[in-house]
Every structure is written in C-alpha cells, then in structure tokens.
Design a protein around this nucleic acid. Structure first.
Lengths: 331, 331
DNA sequence: TCGACATACGTAAACGTTTGCGGTCGGAGG
DNA sequence: CCTCCGACCGCAAACGTTTACGTATGTCGA
C-alpha cells in the first residue's frame, strides 16, 4: 500500500497540513526545526512518494512539459529530445512527447498532443508552417515556446536566421562555380513565403541564374532518394544542390552515389541543420549548423519565464547559423 | 474557466454520476438513449475535457507509459520513440520519456525515470546490463516490458537473438577471408557473459583465429572515431571489424576514411541493429537488422496484457535477426 | 394484486493533496 | 495583570472524478 501524507501525520501525531508544509519547503510557513526534522526523517524512512495526481488536482499544475515534435523521423529530434529532457528533469519537470499531425487543423486532437494538461509546450519543428496552430485553443491556454520555427510573431522563440543561412549556402555554391543549382525540398515548403525558398530564389536570380525546384512528397528519405534518381535521369543533373534539410541531403547523397555521380566534383551538396549524421559520411556534408544545445537551453529558459508570468515581455532570439563547409562542397 | 462534469450535470439537470457514466461509455450501466445523446451533445458543445488528474486520483491509473531509454544518442531511439508513441497514442496512452542513468543503482532516481506513477514501463536498451535495475522497487511495482535487452529471466521481453546474430556476422567476415577480425565495442560490454562478446570470441576461436578486442569508453561516436584511429596507428589494422552497434560502426567507417583505408577492400565492416543511417553512406554498412517496427508492436501488446493481468504467463519472444550484407563487407 | 426483476438515475463517499483561516501558547511590552 | 504579537500548528474545505449502493419507476408473471 502506498504511503500517504495522512499516514505520516498520524504516525507522528501531526496534522496532514503540517506534513505537507514541511515536504513542500514552504518558507512562508512557520515550522519548528524539531518537527521539520521528524517529518523529513519519517518521510524518508517510510518511503513516501507524493501522489502527483492529487497534487495536480488541487494546484492545477502537473510539472509536465509537452515536447511537440514533427512526425518526421530525423536524428535532429534525437538530439533535441536528449537535450531538453536532461534540462527539464534537472528542474523537476517530466517530459511528455507528442507528435503533431500536421499543419491542417488547429485542435488539440489534430495536434496529436497530450490530453494531459501540461504546464508548458515546447514546439520543435524546423519544417512546418505553424501559424494555423497558434490560433488553436491549446496554444492560447498553455504557455509555449518554439524552437526552429515561428508560429506567430507574438510568441517566444529561439530560431536560426533561415534567410541568411540559405543565402550564404547558395552564395557558397555560386562561388564554387555552380551554374545550375537545384533546390531539393518537400513539396509543402516549396512556395513563396517560406524563408528558405525565398532566400534561395532571390539569391539565384540576383546571380542571373535560373531557379530549379525539385519538390518531393512525402519528404521521407527513401522516397526522396528514388525521386531524385528519377528526376536526374529525366532532366539531367544540376551541378549544385541546396537541400531543405539534412535528411534530404543524405538521401540526395545516396541517390547521387546510385547514379555514379561524384560529390563534390560533379555535384556540390549542401544541407541544413547540421545533424550529427552528416559528419560520418565518406564525404562529410556541408551544412548549416544549428547550435542545438544552446537553443534548447535558451528555449527552456524562455518557457520557464513565461510559465511564471504570462504577461512577461516577448522573448525572441534569432541566431545566425553557421555554414560549415565540408568536403561535399569543397573543390 | 475549464468546464467540468458538474457543470454539464447541472446544465442538464442530471447528476454527475450519470454524466460520468455516459462519458466513460460504461456498458454495464443502464442509460437511456435520450439522456446519453443529451450528455454527449452538451459535452461536445461546451467543449468538455476531462480532468486527468482527478480521474487518476480516483482510478489509480494515469494512462501514461514511461519510455525508458538509454542515454546514448543513437538514431535507434528516434525510430523506437516514433513507433511506440504512435501506437500508444492510438490506444489512448501518453508517452513519458525518461533516460536511465546507468547500471549502477536500482532506485527510481538513479533510473532517472518519472516521478509520475505511470501505468507501465517500456525499457528500450540494447546496450546495458539491466539486471540490477530489475531488482529495484520500481520494476517490482510497475508492469514493464523490455525491447532489445533482458533484465531478468522472469520478465516479458522482445529481443533479437544476439548470439546467433553475432555468430553469423563473424562467420560472414571469416568467409570473406578475413584473418584478423577485431571486436569494436564499449568498455562496459567487453566481458565474458555478454552475449555478443561471447559469440564473437567463440566463433573466432573455433575458426582458429585470435580474438582482438578494441574497447572504448565512453562509447560516443566522436570518441570512438578518435580511439580507433589511435589504435590502428599503434598496432596496425584488422582486416575485418565487427562492431557492437551501428553507431560504433559509423564511427569506425569515418575513422577508416580518415586513415585512408578502403572499405571493404582493406577492412570489411559489420555493425549491429540496422539503423537507417547505415544505408545512406557511399558504402552502405552490412549490419544485423532488427525488425524494430514489429518489435515495438509486440512489446506494446505484451505490456498491455501484463497491465491488465499481472499474473499472466510470461511473454517472451526471441527473434532471429537478419544479417543484411551490404557493400561495406562485399568483396 | 403483489412481489420480483430490469431499467434508469441519484446520493454520497472516496481518492491524497494543498491552503486559507483560525486557534493555542508563550513571552514581551505597557 | 492585561494585552498583543509572533511562532507554531490544526481544521476543514476544495480540487473533479469515479463507483458502490440505494431509490424510483415500469413491466411481467403468478
């Protein structure tokens, strides 16, 4: 039988209130040192564990944080989950993972998130357009922070500057002498209004080159790999490829291997996000590295502030990403 | 203000009990069709969401499942989290992630797991020796199931046959003509008693070859990469390398590239677990593929059974893994 | 007509915590 | 000696559900 505050109280001839106050270390309450020690000892000896449900019921807080992830299975998320979980835990929070259904709907069910009322939400999604979500009731009621993407302007976030990153990457390809630079991305993000798309198009046109969009759906690795093969067989191959994210870049790398095309001699390859995997290829990928660890730390800091004060001033950070040039685009 | 069962009840001139019964679809209770419909409509219109904490308090169930992961950041876990979260959600459960601290201790804190009392635990850890953990109080109280490793004999699990997998892999290297086959692994698992270690040693010796252990700690990618480089420079290079898991194999691949050694001509490389990443190299890695999707499905099935009947007979499945021979060991 | 039984719903206790309010007791100040 | 205040602690309500049990109504067979 689980032991409760009541049990400790009767055992020590105290009231549950006193025990609770001791256990919660409320310094606004006056508790004598002796009883404090007695309670602490008894709790330890009897192996007391608080009933979180009961506490949540009365306080309204659950000490749970939702990690809202995109459905895409990229090792980007492994890193993020690891980083955030460590930090949340250190501050006494538990991590609930949820995967968002997509961009269509704004309800909680469509969000695919927790029915448990969590104290905060960390949205991690470098891919989708989250603006519709932000209008949903969930995000109106629960404090949240975004990593990697911005749902609405009036929200807390930590992002990298997609525009300047993409621009730098494309300029890098141009400086390499590439004349036919393709943009390899999921269909959902190939439209004016998307930061990377815009940056790519503008930079290409400013250089007097022709944009060339290679859009795949679904943007999974295996499909992207096959799709790029088909594309190249039909229309020939660009001499430079800028990929929306590293998963696509890796799929592209593999597809180019399949086709017998040499990287970087025949095709220079650049990805985005800087997932670990890009370093373990024979030709490590050039990629726009996101400083995930500090991004996660900062985001959590922002969320905590927001939770304790919903009216706190907006907290927004735009980091300038770092284009790390590696052999896949070194000539 | 959140709306409660009470609110619905007074609004419809019913008792909370009736509303609750309707909302929980209890078929052992007799509710007229008309009131049922009225309650359902009102709940929908008023936007009722159950208070999970209150429910948990009285039922003792939280509809939460802990996913206990190893601290190692492998994309193995990305896949597992994705698979399990999808399935749990479909059955009305939420996913709490926890990272286990290690093998040393057996307490809940050392486990690094949730303070929230979850209904079940899924332990995913292809690396550690979990036997000490199983003696801890947490696993005595909460139903659990293991994927990829076995904490104790009297537990539910879904694993692959490490022994036969490793044996097959090593035999494959031998049949390739390798005479100096190294075993590349983390220090913690390089000892008699570990299934893969034993299988490796036995197979090597049966073939009249000399075992050669290359143990690294910590077994992170970046460290493993550097460690293998050092090792090879000091003592020369084996002509075959069997790696404890794919992360190490990828690190090895990278290290061999650094050293200018050709895979598979000079060194044949074999990994374990079959993470997605192994397919996206220039020379895809030979690896022992684990059927993760079906493993997750089966494990969840086992756990559900165990949750509803703690005395159910043991559920144990040992899958024979599949050595998928790819270019990294094709001569 | 009378009980038995099925159906439909209400009553109230219980889950374990937190917390506002009040009470007691000792000592200091007037 | 009375008052007042601060330290320490208990009382009891409240959080929103679930569920065992009880009650009321209607139906049916004897």
């Amino acid at each position: 039988m689980r032991i409760t505050i009541q049990a400790i109280a009767t055992h020590l001839q105290l009231s549950p209130a006193t025990v609770s106050r001791v256990l919660n270390r409320r310094e606004d309450a006056f508790i004598s040192q002796t009883t404090r020690q007695r309670v602490l000892r008894a709790a330890a000896e009897m192996g007391y564990r608080p009933n979180r449900a009961a506490r949540a019921l009365v306080t309204g807080r659950t000490d749970l944080i939702t990690l809202a992830l995109n459905r895409v299975r990229s090792s980007y998320y492994t890193e993020v989950i690891y980083q955030l979980q460590e930090q949340l835990r250190r501050d006494g929070y538990e991590t609930l993972v949820g995967q968002m259904a997509g961009e269509r709907d704004t309800g909680l069910d469509a969000l695919g998130l927790s029915e448990w009322p969590t104290d905060g939400i960390i949205i991690v999604d470098p891919l989708s357009d989250l603006r519709p979500l932000a209008r949903g009731s969930l995000l109106q009621q629960t404090p949240f922070v975004c990593i990697g993407t911005v749902p609405i302007e009036v929200a807390d976030y930590v992002v990298v500057d997609l525009d300047s990153g993409a621009r730098e990457a494309v300029e890098h390809l141009i400086s390499l002498g590439c004349r036919r630079i393709g943009y390899f991305a999921g269909k959902g993000v190939c439209h004016p209004g998307d930061a990377r798309y815009d940056a790519y198009s503008r930079t290409i046109q400013e250089a007097g080159l022709q944009p060339e969009i290679i859009a795949v759906a679904p943007a999974t690795r295996s499909h992207a790999r096959a799709a790029l093969c088909d594309y190249v067989r039909d229309r020939g191959c660009p001499d430079g490829l800028f990929c929306f994210h590293d998963d696509l870049a890796l799929a592209a790398y593999r597809a180019l291997c399949d086709l017998g095309l040499r990287v970087p001699e025949e095709v220079a390859l650049v990805g985005c996000d800087g997932i670990q995997e890009t370093q373990y290829l024979e030709k490590p990928l050039t990629t726009i590295v996101q400083p995930l660890e500090s991004m996660c730390a900062l985001a959590w800091q922002y969320l905590q502030r927001r939770m304790q004060d919903p009216a706190a001033p907006l907290q927004q950070t735009i980091l300038t990403p770092c284009l790390e040039i590696r052999p896949s685009s070194r000539r």
